[in-house]
Write a protein that binds this DNA or RNA. Structure first.
Length: 279
DNA sequence: GGAAGATGACAAG
DNA sequence: TTGTCCTCTTCCC
């Protein structure tokens, strides 16, 4: 589901299924009907993802911009399209496969200029080549907001959601409530490298697994990673009240800027501010 | 049958 | 910070 890895994987799948083909475009639910009529029967040139945004390009420089939001899903199916189930806002189809979009925050027809404006607003995306993590560091290192909030801010870094936020902070022993301007550059460089690795793995597997082999519980040894509601084996995300896989302290949760935050109070020690950072 | 909650983002105040 | 939107699933009565 929708963190950056989901969108990049989706773009890849849409390319292999529909890239270069003429597609039937419809909006069974009706909310995208006018645009669907315009695109119906035209060639789908390709799809690409930037952060949590998905762009699908059709002939005549027409682009569909999709943002799944919290609850959206874009699912591909093999076989000829059947009757729509539920609220299908957008359906792409060929005689042998189809894809249904439901619950998206955004599904709109845009121009290449609008696409550029959308992508220009975002911070660097760990899943794209040639990104500059220093652009994110420039904002983090100047901000008194918590690192937990900064990592979720798409203007700072693109593609990170609640799961990767919780997990990468755990893996680096950083309290999510710590202000961005108290972090060291070395810590950000290490976190960025970790995000690149974790999220790339997420694109391949379609799930979020962050637990190192040595921290897997003994009963899990020799078994494939467990699958939680969110699909993946993690250290702290949605594990409030359970034992930390590393130190057995109870994982805590708290709402930060409207989102559930999870962390281990022992592994992710609270930063103690002695004096204002000097540089 | 209805409420709550979920991997998100925006506008209003 | 709060409210709102999107849809579906799970839980509780």
């Amino acid at each position: 589901m929708p963190e950056g890895h989901t969108l990049h994987r989706l773009a890849r799948d849409l390319n292999s299924t529909f890239g270069g083909r003429r597609v039937q475009v419809s909006s069974p639910q009706g909310r995208f009907a006018d645009a669907a009529d315009l695109l119906h029967g035209t060639r789908l040139l390709g799809a690409d993802a930037v952060g949590k945004h998905l762009f699908i390009e059709f002939d005549s420089a027409r682009l569909v911009h999709v943002h799944l939001g919290l609850i959206g899903a874009f699912i591909l199916y093999d076989g000829p399209p059947g009757l729509p189930v539920g609220q299908v806002r957008l359906r792409l189809a060929t005689p042998v496969s189809y894809a249904d979009l439901r619950g998206a925050l955004t599904c709109e027809l845009i121009t290449p200029e609008q696409r550029d404006a959308i992508t220009a607003k975002g911070g660097p995306d760990p899943l794209l080549q040639d990104q500059d993590p220093d652009r994110a560091w420039a904002r983090i290192s100047r901000s008194a907001r918590t690192i937990g909030a900064l990592l979720m801010d798409q203007h700072v870094v693109s593609g990170i959601g609640n799961v990767y936020r919780a997990e990468v902070l755990f893996r680096h022993g950083i309290d999510p409530r710590r202000p961005g301007n108290t972090l060291r550059r070395k810590q950000w460089v290490a976190m960025w490298a970790d995000l690149v690795g974790l999220m790339s793995q997420g694109v391949e597997s379609g799930r979020i697994d962050t637990v190192r082999p040595e921290h897997r519980p003994p009963e899990a040894m020799g078994r494939p990673p467990r699958v939680d509601d969110h699909g993946g084996e993690v250290y702290v995300y949605r594990r409030a009240g359970q034992d930390c896989l590393v130190c057995r302290t109870r994982v805590r949760t708290e709402v930060l800027e409207g989102r559930n935050l999870f962390w281990c109070p022992a592994c992710q020690r609270r930063f103690r501010s002695r004096a204002r950072p000097t540089s």
